[in-house]
Amino acid sequence: MNVFRLAGDMTHLLSIIILLLKIRATKSCTGISLKTQELYVIVFLTRYLDLFTKYISFYNTTMKLVFLGTSISIVWYMRYHKVVKQTYNKDQDTFRHYFLAIPCFLLALLIHHEFTVIEVLWTFSIYLEAVAILPQLVLLQRSRNIDNLTGNYVFLLGAYRALYLVNWVYRYFTENHLVRWIPWLSGLVQTTLYADFFYYYIKSWKNNEKLQLPA
């Protein structure tokens, strides 16, 4: 474990906590894409299949359970909570997320480290996570005003994978140059997708004005 990866995990955890707080405190999920949240549940389920078969560390197991639990409860709130589900922008959150999942699965069948169920599904989760934010970014462009909590949530979510990129550089130089193309390239794509959001987020923060994404 290095400081970059720990910072990445904490940033990721913070983003999810902020989203859960927003939903629970305001009893509203306005501006949040249910499609992206459902993709994250699939990402965690397919990535943590070896949760009970392979013990890495107490930290690793705990964080996996926290990520699974929080992401599933967010989807539950948005789908079934009587008050929250009324605030879901159903008619704006129209991104066909299966158009993202299917190519990722096919790509995982083609490009992977080894052809086993666990490995192919893990690879699928890496590819899927790279594009899972797209429905959320599209929804942000459609919703006129973005509330601060939602903006902070997306920013921290993008920042976590950027910290993971730094972690991978650090590990490359400190762990006998182990090459890991699949997470590296996917992580690069994932972080790049946030580029314009980062630009507008930092601009709005500097000019102390409301975050607004161009349509």
Partner: peptide, 10 residues
């Protein structure tokens, strides 16, 4: 492809 990397990350 490289060796199957250890899955110690989240």
């Amino acid at each position: 492809s490289s060796s199957k990397d250890v899955k110690d990350e989240l």
